[in-house]
């Protein structure tokens, strides 16, 4: 499961130019691991970086976008690792939906 140290510099993100995007939806078919569509057909893009395998699919999605709205960019380098600690539960605002 550890990806630390492996190909960190090669990780990428997809992003969409919301003004160019016309909601054709091809991207979600080609890269379902990172892109899903809302109920109006516009992409909702995950901010999780992709490694080289997935990036190959991302290239195809970018190339397929009829509106030239989709692009890839290098993922920002992860923050320096802090010693592993059990996650602290965050206090939830009261009255929030469960």
């Amino acid at each position: 499961m550890s990806l630390i140290g492996a190909a960190v510099g090669h990780r990428t993100l997809v992003r969409v130019d919301p003004i160019r995007c016309d909601g054709h939806g091809l991207c979600a078919g080609l890269l379902p691991e990172r892109i899903r569509l809302d109920e109006w057909g516009y992409p909702i893009i995950s901010s999780e970086p992709m490694d080289a395998d997935l990036d190959a699919h991302a290239r195809r999605a970018v190339a397929a976008c009829p509106a030239l709205a989709l692009s890839r960019q290098p993922a920002p380098l992860p923050a320096p690792r802090t010693p592993a600690r059990p996650p602290t539960p965050r206090s939830r605002p009261t009255g929030g939906p469960r």
């Binding site: 919301p18 003004i19 995007c21 016309d22 909601g23 809302d38 109006w40 057909g41 516009y42």
Partner: peptide, 9 residues
């Protein structure tokens, strides 16, 4: 009206 999520959402 430039981006999808806004004029629909």
């Amino acid at each position: 009206g430039q981006c999808g999520p806004c004029p629909y959402g």
